[in-house]
Nucleic acid binder design. Structure first.
Lengths: 221, 221
DNA sequence: TTAACATTGATAAAATTTTAACAGCCATTG
DNA sequence: CAATGGCTGTTAAAATTTTATCAATGTTAA
């Protein structure tokens, strides 16, 4: 069976993109553990979906698995990175260094995923100047200057909701391409600019819905 | 036009549940601002989808909008809360009070969304005893006892990946129903227990994919 | 060498989700 | 009071996404 040529303009379905990013995390962990090969059914087991869906997701990738053998973990991970656009460095800034911004700055292994943290900005004089994970917090007044200078392409927005739109506008006018929005403010941006909303409270609500489907089980200690 | 009776066993499509939780945040903001009524097209505009989809999502809710008038914001919000299971109090614990756990404890307005934070647990003696937003951090060794006692139904997991599965097991055996997992460890849980994964790094990757679709625009200052 | 086995790549069918269309209702206006 | 306009509830069609199926292929064992 011959693998069809990968289409040049690879347009993946959004649910597929979401799963691929999660597969990548799983693959990286397997790789750390020294595993070299994984089958679609094993990945499906860990991810809690079906082998068929895993194969369908991987099907669009440039990579080739080995029929009868499974996938080389490193090759597959690389193929996912490439497809997601993580093979070349993505420059990022964090806007708002309150509790959440600071936590993200310290918590997220940007470097491990093809991203480079190029700046952290805040307007609080007691925070400006602090060094977090090797990056100094700068005054938000020089945000535009820095974003343009470094040609930053993505921003994380962790400011109070009341100023979120204003800062989004400033980021957009500085040429930013995507915003990861952790505020509860919906943002209005021009076409071609992408906003990804990340509201943990919504995840709670969604989990609450799942939990409602059946009664709480008895403890089993 | 007569509204059909709401089906008793209201089973919503998952994408619908996701959107409803986000609509709720938007509605709450409009309500704060003093607005009383909203139309499907207005909500669609803010959310960036279509009026048709908004109406389709709302269609399954027990609530009734007013034909020709739009939706009463408070009624609609209440209907969403009810449907999502946020009308009765959901008891929650936070497991792991490192940087992320602490940030969540301080950052998330549990009370405003029908949830009650019933405990924060860690194993670090320098952290145990701290009081965060009115809740004392307790020793994780009494986790099971507390979860059973208070009949807690959801947990947030913010521990190192290496101990995530172990703690998930302990939570499950204590009768927990749902886990919001912020670690990068995939969890294995029995059927009927729900895990919601929340990996910010994945949101970054997904945003990177969106951004890859078109080139970075020129700044426009 | 040949047969048995495991597992992918690919396609087709099934299921789900989104979009479109419109009748009916309420408020408002002339 | 009738006509107009705006917007929902509902259904049907279209599009997308998931699942099922199976031929093809490399590996291993007899």
């Amino acid at each position: 069976m011959q693998k069809k040529e990968a289409p040049l303009h690879n347009n993946l379905a959004w649910p597929t993109v979401q799963r691929l990013s999660e597969y990548l995390i799983i693959l990286e962990q397997f790789a750390e553990g020294g595993r070299e090969v994984i089958s679609s059914s094993e990945l499906a087991e860990v991810y809690s979906n079906t082998p068929s869906q895993v194969r369908q997701d991987i099907f669009r990738l440039p990579n080739t698995g080995r029929v009868g053998q499974g996938y080389r973990i490193k090759e597959l991970a690389e193929a996912i990175r490439e497809t997601l656009g993580l093979d070349s460095v993505t420059k990022i800034v964090i806007v708002g260094c309150g509790r959440m911004g600071m936590t993200l700055a310290q918590h997220i292994p940007f470097g491990e995923h093809g991203m480079k943290l190029c700046g952290i900005f805040d307007n609080d004089p007691t925070i400006i100047g602090l060094e977090i994970e090797g990056t100094k917090v700068e005054d938000v007044s020089i945000l535009e200057k820095k974003v343009v200078e470094s040609a930053v392409s993505m921003a994380v927005l962790c400011v109070p909701a009341s100023v979120a739109q204003e800062l989004a506008d400033r980021l957009v006018s500085s040429g930013i391409k995507g915003i990861l929005n952790l505020t509860r403010q919906r943002l209005k941006v021009p076409p071609g600019i992408y906003v990804q909303y990340e509201q943990i409270i919504c995840s709670f609500m969604q989990l609450a819905y799942k939990c409602k489907q059946s009664p709480r089980p008895a403890p089993n200690l």
